[in-house]
Design a protein around this nucleic acid. Structure first.
Lengths: 329, 329
DNA sequence: CTGATTTCTGACCAACGTTTGCAGAACCAG
DNA sequence: CTGGTTCTGCAAACGTTGGTCAGAAATCAG
């Protein structure tokens, strides 16, 4: 408690507070005396009391569907790094279900804290719903994939539409007649990367084949791979993420189709295992950690200036490895 | 604010508080009236004020070196799930460096919040140091690998020593003369799984070969794999985790050594990609999510009863897939 | 139906640990 | 002596909880 420090240092309570907050000039000797008392007592200010009286908030909430999956976890890490560097604490709130009751209770739980603001990881439809469930009074920013129609809240984007387009163009450039697509769940009808794939196909004058809708997991990629393996005309597959890609490759391998000799496979995200795969996986590398950092900075700017910041965007880049090649003759 | 709700419902402030805290009997009609006022106003209690006056804390801090790596992220997920189910919020504090200054500032940041308690993910030496940096006055529990000499704080263990032993016994049982080991960094001199490997070797009367020390990453496994590939007497390798295993396998493949025909490789953790590997990876499956849940429950029990709970332990299990076989004749 | 008892409600207040504004005292330099 | 620093104590405020006390309403026994 402040009072103990004041006693120990032989000064008044107000003086200690003034030294600690640093808003008032204080002599060097006094500062030293107070600081040593703080150190001796191991005093830590009570954030609840500080927040209550000053309204200063040093906590940001991260709301996400998941914290384990690579993209989410890496974004969270970026947010945490940036927040810690600025002296903010981050609390996490996992939103598991779109059911309004469950959503409300998850949101209420984190909002019961005094928050400087909230960050929503808007990689899926649940993220959009979460954004809607948050009060307008709170500064809220979002981390998202490709720029699409979104609400009025600032976003940090990671433009996977461009990534999807480039990967598709690359495959077509190798001579493939068409590129099949195994899609992850999306914020809207289609994820950015799916739009990019579609756009590249249309631009090349090719009618996009039917999308194979999958979840995020290798198993689901495996199922998709089994279907693709049956169709011998398939020579190139763009997968919505790396985990799907490895599932697809496993199914292809089991069906006796070689990668990349018979079929080229491209992943998305560049997870750490991708370059160790057999064969090393061609994939679109996305800087999720950087996305998290940018997102936090958006929020920090907002709370510091009081003005809603402009959204920012960054692009992923294609990393060519050995899971892609020209189609068989 | 409470006062607004009271006005809206036409009752006194104390009554609203009584309804909300539920410690005092209140008539149904009044309760309904207050609750509808709460709903109309979208009132959320101010946790800072509640904590300040009642001392009730609903936040637990998770201190970890990392939140992205599989084991850490999965443990965090388990903690979050269990905490949310009990109405607790979790804040994360990444501790990046053992440097006392940096450690203190990271710890101080999260401890400035009013906490019900803290959970340390003690998978590495940094976790041990973090545990030491936490005040005795706070309820602190830890999630850890195999049971070793630890301080007086309750632990939830995931007994990787048993896992390491079983994996090694399995390899020896296949007829391998010896089992090499690529080790992850450890809490102490050796991780539990390394001890288990060593114990199984000694029990079989085999002098354990020199451990190849690695980090956590595929790259580091790749380096280890290159060294192992040079020694043609190597027929079995136990890796400290799955990422190391895939690095080892890539290096072996590049050196022309087949898995499992020439060399058997076993991983650790059973990450989602492990069963999709080529060949599907034999590994020791660890329930990190369950570990996180158990750890939180330890803390919840402590804060509820006021008595320090007893540590708990669970064992991983070996999952045999196709990366292991009898040694070449 | 009355009176006694129990249950519910309102008003008021202290407390939690800080920040911050105010008025003034002590000190120093010029 | 004046003016500027630096420091002091005092007190209000933040939004709750939870205690006390008194009165109103409901319930019950007879």
């Amino acid at each position: 408690m402040l009072r103990d420090v004041a006693e120990r240092a032989g000064v008044s309570l107000s003086t200690v507070s003034r030294v600690l907050t640093g808003r008032t000039p204080v002599s060097k000797s006094l500062r030293a005396r107070v600081e040593s008392a703080v150190a001796e007592l191991g005093y830590r200010p009570n954030a609840a009391a500080q927040t209550l009286v000053s309204g200063r908030r040093r906590t940001v909430a991260v709301l996400a569907r998941n914290t384990l999956r690579y993209g989410y976890a890496a974004t969270l890490q970026g947010i945490e790094e940036a927040a810690r560097a600025s002296g903010f604490v981050v609390t996490i709130g996992v939103v598991e279900s779109e059911d309004p009751e469950a959503m409300k209770s998850a949101v209420d739980l984190v909002l019961s804290q005094p928050l400087a603001g909230a960050i929503v990881v808007e990689f899926d439809a649940l993220g959009v719903a979460t954004l809607d469930a948050l009060p307008e009074s709170l500064p809220v920013v979002a981390a998202a994939g490709a720029r699409r129609k979104v609400g009025s809240r600032p976003h940090a984007f990671l433009d996977d539409e461009t990534g999807g387009r480039e990967a598709t163009e690359y495959l077509l450039g190798l001579g493939h007649r068409t590129v099949h697509h195994v899609a992850i769940p999306a914020t809207r009808a289609r994820s950015g990367r799916s739009w990019g794939w579609r756009a590249a196909m249309k631009a090349a004058g090719i009618e996009p084949p039917k999308v194979i809708q999958a979840s995020y997991d290798p198993d689901s990629g495996y199922d998709a791979g089994q279907r693709l393996a049956r169709d011998l005309s398939v020579t190139a597959v763009l997968c919505g993420n790396d985990e799907l890609a490895i599932g697809v490759m496993r199914a292809l391998a089991e069906a006796g189709r070689r990668v990349p000799e018979d079929v080229s496979v491209v992943g998305f995200d560049d997870q750490p295992f991708a370059r160790m795969w057999t064969p090393p996986l061609t994939t679109v590398s996305q800087d999720f950690v950087g996305l998290g950092q940018r997102t936090f900075r958006l929020l920090a700017e907002w709370t510091a200036t009081g003005r809603k910041p402009r959204s920012t965007s960054a692009s992923p880049r294609l990393v060519v490895r050995s899971s892609t090649a020209a189609p068989p003759a």
